[in-house]
């Protein structure tokens, strides 16, 4: 079966972003960009399914600016067979991405779509669920274990208070949690090979999808700063401060 894996180009998780002084957004000019960490886990899982003989082809897709091609090359270096980019400079919100992905799913007909549970830039945690809704497919979010057998997939999910296991009929949508797997490092030979793999570029217009943002961002501001703390010399002072100054114990 085919597996489709959407990946997103985001500000690298180690970068501490700064809010622009005009409050129009965060300053992402000249900062390091990488593949969203949850998407790396998704592409790794799809690659493992292929290595196990469960998946026949892994297709990485991305939506966004032209530079997202780099992210797709990384996905192909990890193990995707080919890639597609829906290229646009418009700010894409989860609903628009879900609609673009639906168009790609309609075209490619995969049995499984594996997404990251959330992107670390907008922290929305919506796209997988929205895609499942648009396709009317079952969903298993926050997956920490995936086992495909026949025409169904068994997924263990990380929920508040423990774990939960579901069985979904294929085709289905899965979103990855951190502990699903540890993505492999890409090797130089695989980076070279990835350069030769096919990468198709389409536009939202070609897919017939309206991607206009639904939510208007009025401003982006700094979170309230915490007042500077103090270093205490010993445990006795700490306990005294907690009891008498902060009054929390």
């Amino acid at each position: 079966m085919k597996v489709l894996v959407p990946v997103k180009r985001v500000v690298d998780y180690n970068v501490k972003v700064r809010v622009k002084s005009d409050q129009s957004g965060v300053d992402i000019a000249n900062v390091k960009m990488s593949m969203n960490p949850f998407d790396e886990i998704a592409i790794e899982e799809a690659t493992r399914l292929k290595e196990k003989g469960v998946a026949t082809e892994v297709i990485a897709v991305s939506c966004g600016v032209a530079q997202s091609q780099e992210t797709l090359r990384t996905a192909m270096a990890i193990g995707a067979d080919r890639a597609a980019l829906v290229q646009t400079d418009v700010e894409l919100q989860p609903l628009a991405v879900a609609k673009l992905l639906k168009a790609l799913v309609d075209k490619e007909q995969p049995q499984l779509v594996i997404l990251g549970k959330q992107a670390i830039d907008d922290d929305a945690n919506q796209t997988g669920q929205m895609l499942a809704a648009l396709l009317d497919w079952p969903q298993a979010t926050f997956a920490s274990k995936v086992e495909v057998s026949g025409d169904s997939v068994t997924v263990t999910r990380e929920v508040d208070g423990g774990l939960e296991t579901l069985s979904l009929k294929l085709p289905a949508i899965i979103t990855t949690d951190l502990r699903l797997n540890e993505p492999r490092y890409v090797t130089l030979p695989n980076i070279m090979k990835a350069k030769k793999k096919p990468l198709e570029v389409v536009t939202p217009e070609e897919l017939g999808v309206d991607v206009a943002p639904r939510l208007k961002t009025l401003k982006v501001s700094e979170p309230p700063a915490r007042s500077a703390g103090i270093i205490v010399p010993d445990v006795a002072t700490l306990v005294e401060k907690l009891k008498n100054e902060a009054k929390v114990v």
Partner: peptide, 10 residues
């Protein structure tokens, strides 16, 4: 957004 490093008004 961005792990709580910015607050968006939407």
């Amino acid at each position: 957004i961005y792990a709580g490093n910015a607050i968006a008004t939407v």
